[in-house]
Amino acid sequence: MKLKSLLLSLGLLAGATAVQAEDPLKVGFVYVGPVGDLGWSYEHDLGRIGLEKHFGDKVETTYVENVPEGADAERVITQLAKAGNDLIFTTSFGFMNPTVKVAKRFPKVTFEHATGYKRSRNVGTYVLRTYEGRYVSGVAAGMMTKTNTIGYIASFPIPEVIRDIDTVYMAAKKVNPDVKIKIVWVNSWYDPGKETDAANALMDQGVDILIQHTDSPAPQIAAEKRGMRSIGQASNMSKFAPEAHMFSVRDNWTPYYVNVAEEVMNNTWKPSDYWGGFKEDMLTIESINPNLPADVKAKIKETYAAIKSGELKPFTGPIKDNKGNIVVPEGHSLTDEELAQVNWYVEGITDEIPR
């Protein structure tokens, strides 16, 4: 009788284990903006949807949008961990410290933080090589500007944004020695009103090409209204500015989200600092406008191909900062670790970085 009870117990336990093994991987996402921002958060959510399409009922996803960076982020991340999510993606730089803090309290949950640099046993980081897209943008802007003045609408003075401004200017300067860059900081990732005001302020100062590191299509719309030019950020923004839009640099998160989920399912995940770009098809050039001159369209494609193949590495020395210091020695290409610490403007940019 005892043996029968024991076998029955073992059978029940085996059955429970089988059911548990078939449970879907629960994956949570935290977005700094609305999924309808048509930029950064919008593309992250397309990545989430791509994850669902790839795995079907093997995954169950949820997301929280419009999460401010700071205390609210910690609360939201904690709620997702308490809700039983096995894997949580936090998708903005300002979520870094809250992510690391919550991860310590939930050691069995896997956390992935976008654009940060702090890792631990259950926290990995991932980032796009957005500077690759900015280099292509700078080349095109430098060739197209008639006023020799391009404008950059910047969000926050973090390394990602600073190095992208540098890349735009270096690329533009290479094809147009007379080019200047004007920068307006809006201190927001997504604020269509501020983005519109910044775009108009730049155009009032003689800017005729707009590049943005913010997430709404507002700058595209502003450029269209005033007959200027613009380059889309994070998603394909061509429909908002049929004439003004030159092309968009689109983020594609699906490959990474699928890969990480697979690793967690297979118990092979390890914390790392992942960088994806043109080579991995996580950044793409989309909707090159047919109304661009033939030589500009050809140069866009040529520059993209050179970066994708590894022939062209934007941060290869010699590079001086705008104080005259050599920040990248001749022949050296910045490593990922060094790229993550860029906090200087290159020679020729007359602005100061906000502190």
Rank of each mutant, 00 (worst) to 15 (best):
L7M: 14
N66E: 13
T167P: 01
Q205A: 13
I88M: 01
I221Y: 11
W185V: 05
K225N: 13
N176W: 04
V346Q: 03
Y304N: 10
I209T: 06
L292I: 05
G47D: 00
I288E: 02
V19H: 06
K174Y: 11
I158S: 05
V296T: 02
S41V: 00
M203C: 01
I307R: 06
T268S: 05
F111P: 00
K308I: 05
V179R: 00
V186L: 09
L334F: 10
V32F: 00
Y304H: 13
G317N: 06
T167I: 06
G33L: 11
E330W: 11
E352R: 13
F95W: 03
A73G: 07
T78M: 08
R121S: 15
E337A: 14
T167M: 09
D57R: 11
P290S: 10
R250L: 12
A172S: 14
T90D: 00
E280H: 09
Y274N: 15
A340P: 09
L8Y: 13
T350M: 11
E224P: 10
R163S: 08
T335F: 07
N85E: 04
P159C: 02
A199M: 09
V346Y: 08
G84T: 02
A298C: 08
Y117A: 15
K118N: 10
P68E: 06
T284E: 10
A71P: 07
K194N: 06
E280L: 04
Y257P: 02
V32S: 02
G324T: 10
F106Y: 14
M144R: 11
Y126F: 15
T145V: 09
I285P: 01
D37K: 04
G70D: 06
V123Q: 06
F89C: 03
I211Q: 05
Q341F: 15
A172C: 12
T268P: 00
G138K: 02
E243K: 15
I231H: 08
G151P: 05
E337H: 13
T99E: 08
I307Q: 09
G232F: 04
G94R: 04
I326H: 07
G133F: 02
E52P: 07
L38S: 13
V264Y: 04
E22S: 14
F247W: 04
N148K: 10
A71H: 07
L312K: 06
I165C: 11
R355N: 15
R250F: 13
M143R: 12
P354I: 08
P354S: 03
E22Q: 15
G11H: 13
L6H: 14
V35K: 13
P159N: 02
A244K: 01
E132F: 02
K58S: 12
M203I: 04
I162T: 06
N85S: 03
T62R: 11
N200H: 14
A261G: 05
V64M: 03
F89Q: 03
D178S: 15
F106G: 04
R355W: 13
